[in-house]
């Protein structure tokens, strides 16, 4: 049966089902209890599962993310919610030096099956310290998996999967996706990590994206179609693990690639994608890989400045036309 849910409803359903399935799942974060989280994703969960399993923490990102590391090493499956991705820096030691390292440092004696849920991105005037997209920083550190759902369907399926992984996972939501709606079947199974989805097939150019920028990519593909350009759109869904197979197959077919994300362009994940596409598809490419990303400046508050900084469907259209040598 097909049902329509918002992204946040889908996330809440995933949390509810997973907590019902596994009594070791514990949620920790700021304001996630009685208030239900500032984006309301955990609304009602404390009432349902109690204060022992939905823990309202002090404003101590290092403290509770690190406590999640300890819980995870001792048999629990904690989820630490970072209210904004930007606060990952505050907990950076616990994420990057602790959570990701324990298994390897101990020669495999311990594991850290914890989930960090957070949201990122601009478009709401939250300015420089509440709008950043930081997935590339996570992707640079081995030992953690990274999911970036673009739709309610994937939000539910990927979050469910996150609780079944054996390693730290960061599930990165986008603040402008919470109210988007989409079909989420009643008994949606967890979505395996490392499986990209071709959201739209095409023959002239491959647009590779994830998270909210995927919606821009689909919009772009619609209008490109009107000007006679057939774009294939790939949603990576997870960037670690990364499904290069789907990307390579598509690019070898279309011979052109645009990578699009909201994170900064410089050393963004798009740079990694462009490098890999070049390595694996060099002989097939008819144009250099184009990157669409945020400008390399802090995200400004003022609406026109913010819009100018962030990617848009128009910028993706321009990039696609560029690799087609059209204007």
């Amino acid at each position: 049966m097909i049902r329509e849910l918002t992204y946040s409803q889908a996330l809440r359903e995933a949390l509810t089902e997973e907590m019902e399935r596994d009594a070791n799942i514990i949620l920790m974060g700021e304001d996630i209890g009685v208030y239900g989280g500032v984006f309301k994703v955990t609304d009602g969960l404390m009432a349902k599962f109690g204060e022992q399993r939905v823990i309202e923490t002090p404003i101590s990102e290092s403290g509770f993310v690190g406590a999640a590391v300890g819980l995870a090493m001792c048999g629990k499956r904690p989820m630490a919610e970072l209210m904004f991705m930007d606060f990952a820096w505050v907990a950076a030691d616990q994420i990057f030096n602790q959570a990701t390292k324990m298994r390897q440092m101990s020669g495999g004696q311990v594991s850290v099956p914890m989930v960090i849920r957070t949201q990122q991105g601009g478009g709401r005037g939250n300015a420089a310290q509440h709008s950043q997209c930081l997935e590339a920083h996570f992707a640079h550190i081995p030992g953690i998996k990274i999911a970036l759902p673009a739709t309610p369907h994937d939000a539910k399926g990927l979050l469910k999967q996150a609780f079944r992984e054996q390693d730290p996972v960061v599930v990165i939501e986008h603040k402008l996706l919470y109210n988007t709606k989409g079909d989420v079947p009643e008994n949606l199974a967890p979505i395996p990590f490392g499986v990209a989805e071709i959201k739209r097939s095409g023959s002239d150019v491959t647009i590779i994206s994830y998270s909210r920028t995927l919606l821009h990519a689909l919009e772009a593909a619609d209008s490109l179609a009107k000007s006679g350009i057939s774009a294939e759109v790939i949603d990576l869904r997870t960037i670690m693990p990364l499904d290069m197979e789907t990307v390579v197959k598509s690019v070898r077919k279309t011979n052109r690639a645009v990578v699009a994300h909201e994170a900064h362009r410089n050393a963004g994940f798009g740079a990694e994608l462009a490098a890999r596409i070049t390595e694996q598809c060099f002989g097939w490419l008819d144009a250099p890989v184009e990157r669409v990303a945020a400008l390399d400046v802090p995200i400004a508050y003022s609406q026109p400045l913010e819009a100018h900084t962030l990617p848009s469907p128009e910028k993706i259209i321009a990039a696609a036309k560029k690799v087609m040598y059209k204007n």
């Binding site: 514990i26 690190g66 406590a67 590391v69 300890g70 819980l71 001792c74 629990k76 030096n97 602790q98």
Partner: peptide, 23 residues
């Protein structure tokens, strides 16, 4: 549990580990 080379790094972890014991 793994010993830590980040000064202060083990503090939150021991709290989590003992919270697990308590739970």
């Amino acid at each position: 549990l793994p010993a830590n080379a980040i000064v202060g790094g083990g503090f939150p972890t021991i709290v989590g580990a003992t919270l697990a014991a308590k739970m």
